[in-house]
């Protein structure tokens, strides 16, 4: 990815993220968050993580944001106007954020690993086709690698089901428990007659 595009998408992500934090109207905040997530998905694309980028758009910019907007409109939340700002919280929030950013910049600047660029670490697809270990049993992955395309979703799927099968089932159980919990929470309590 050309450096210009990286800076453009980083600007979209951070700029809309800033609008989420400062916006007065909750609907504006929710739409800014969706735009910020789209920028983030573009950054994922630039890191050759195609599957994660698509999931980011589908789950965050799609499902989660619709849920947020639905709740905002269902509860009919008004813009918080005329309310006095909570000055100590704002000052401490900005201070903490600036400190954290400076600390991360300092750590990144002094780490050798962080100086690696994409040119230093090119993907070696044809070479990888011969030494992917157990995944070689699936001809579709090997064929894709030999053809010079990155079988991103296939490799993630293989990793998930080969190494993290149990964890996948625990996540499925978590989603089930979450669904039941939401139904129980949003059930109206029966008032005494």
């Amino acid at each position: 990815m050309p450096p210009l595009l990286f800076y453009l998408f980083a600007l979209i992500t951070l700029g809309f993220g800033f609008m989420v934090v400062t916006g007065r109207n909750p609907v504006t905040c929710a739409l800014s968050l969706a735009a910020s997530f789209v920028g983030l998905a573009a950054l994922f694309l630039s890191l050759d993580a195609y599957f994660i980028a698509v999931i980011q758009i589908l789950v965050y910019a799609g499902a989660v944001m619709v849920l947020f907007l639905f709740i905002i409109m269902l509860l009919d939340i008004k813009t918080e106007e005329g309310k006095k700002l909570n000055m100590p919280a704002i000052v401490s929030g900005i201070l903490l954020a600036v400190l954290l950013t400076l600390q991360i910049i300092a750590v990144v600047g002094s780490t050798k690993l962080a100086q690696k660029s994409v040119q230093d670490t090119p993907l070696a697809l044809a070479e990888a086709a011969t030494k992917i270990g157990k995944a070689a049993a699936l001809p579709t992955i090997t064929n894709d690698l030999k053809a010079g395309t990155l079988p991103d979703a296939k490799l993630i799927g293989f990793t998930l089901f080969d190494q993290y099968g149990f964890h996948l089932q625990v996540i499925g159980l978590l989603l089930l428990v979450g669904t039941i919990g939401v139904v129980v929470l949003s059930k109206r309590e029966r008032s005494a007659p």
């Binding site: 990815m1 450096p3 990286f6 980083a10 950054l43 630039s46 890191l47 950013t101 991360i104 910049i105 990144v108 600047g109 780490t111 690993l113 962080a114 100086q115 690696k116 660029s117 994409v118």
Partner: peptide
């Protein structure tokens, strides 16, 4: 673009 850019 280095890893540091993404981390920042």
């Amino acid at each position: 673009i280095t890893l540091g850019h993404y981390l920042v």
